[in-house]
Design a protein around this nucleic acid. Structure first.
Lengths: 79, 79
DNA sequence: ATGTAGACTCGTGTCGACC
DNA sequence: GGGTCGACACGAGTCTACA
């Protein structure tokens, strides 16, 4: 059973993957066609993305959306 | 390359899976803790869910969120 | 049982500025 | 480079009602 909300598990994962790519929030935002502030909010779990935005973030991070979802679906710490 | 938006590919898939479970929109909505109208909008591609809502829909459909995302990530028709 | 319409609340997502 | 604030447009999500 997963008690934490997916979006809360997604937040730190985005940050981890972004740093693994050596990207700044600004660079990630530009790649994903999003605003810099929004990336900041997502990484801190203040906002959660919609489905389309999730896919754009995944692509910008160089991973598949499936990979993102897999990692926030596991019981272990995704980051 | 995937030109169609994920949310647009998700729409018919939700409907297919729901019918495969023999559920009405109402029943699915109740299971997922959503409103009946919202399910109707999603299945017709008028609205797209957020990440948390996607997970709740997946669970209510008896599949994993990973499975949903896998099927809307393929080049083939997910439904 | 589904689609649609309207009205509503609140969150997503943008933008500029500042720290 | 990142956090935060305020303001904004628009979309997510609820609800009632009708076809």
């Amino acid at each position: 059973m997963i008690d934490t909300l997916p979006s809360q598990r997604l937040a730190p994962l985005i940050r981890t993957l972004r740093k693994a790519q050596g990207l700044s929030q600004e660079a990630l935002a530009e790649r994903a066609g999003l605003h810099r502030n929004f990336v900041s909010l997502i990484e801190r779990g203040k906002n959660q993305p919609t489905v389309d935005t999730l896919f754009r973030l995944a692509e910008a991070l160089g991973v598949t959306a499936v990979e993102l979802v897999e990692r926030i679906s596991t019981a272990n710490d995704p980051a």
